[in-house]
Computed example of a mutant assay.
Amino acid sequence: MFKYIHRQHSAIPAALGCEITEQGHIKIDNFQKTSLAGVFACGDNSSMMRSVANAVATGNLAGAMVNKELVDEVF
């Protein structure tokens, strides 16, 4: 059986200490949050779905969640 392994093209997630899945993607929750507080990931580096539409959708969600966390801190 074919086993898909994604290779991150940046060492930043690993250097930060982000948890990586068995397939090589940055592990995220349903709100694009990584295993590190305040760090979000989206697009190809966190999903097996490699498409512009997915990158736009997950990027939009990640941006909304970052905004929510910033607003929650202020208020």
Rank of each mutant, 00 (worst) to 15 (best):
F2H: 06
K3C: 04
Y4W: 11
Y4Q: 12
I5K: 05
I5H: 11
H6F: 13
H6L: 05
H6N: 15
H9T: 11
S10E: 12
A11M: 11
I12F: 10
A14N: 10
A14M: 08
A14T: 06
A15E: 14
A15H: 09
L16E: 08
G17C: 03
C18Y: 05
C18D: 04
E19W: 01
E19S: 10
T21Y: 02
E22I: 03
E22A: 10
Q23C: 00
G24K: 11
H25W: 07
I26G: 02
I26R: 01
I28Q: 03
I28D: 10
D29W: 09
D29P: 08
N30Y: 02
F31S: 04
F31H: 12
Q32M: 15
Q32R: 14
T34K: 00
S35D: 00
L36I: 15
A37Q: 03
A37S: 14
V39K: 09
A41D: 12
G43S: 02
G43V: 01
G43H: 06
D44F: 00
S46I: 13
S46P: 06
S46M: 12
M49L: 13
M49K: 15
S51E: 07
V52D: 04
N54T: 15
N54Y: 14
N54I: 13
A55E: 07
A55V: 05
A55L: 02
A55Y: 08
V56M: 14
A57E: 08
T58N: 13
T58K: 10
G59M: 12
N60K: 09
L61C: 06
G63M: 03
A64K: 10
M65D: 03
V66K: 02
N67K: 02
E69Y: 02
L70I: 14
V71I: 13
V71F: 09
D72N: 04
E73W: 12
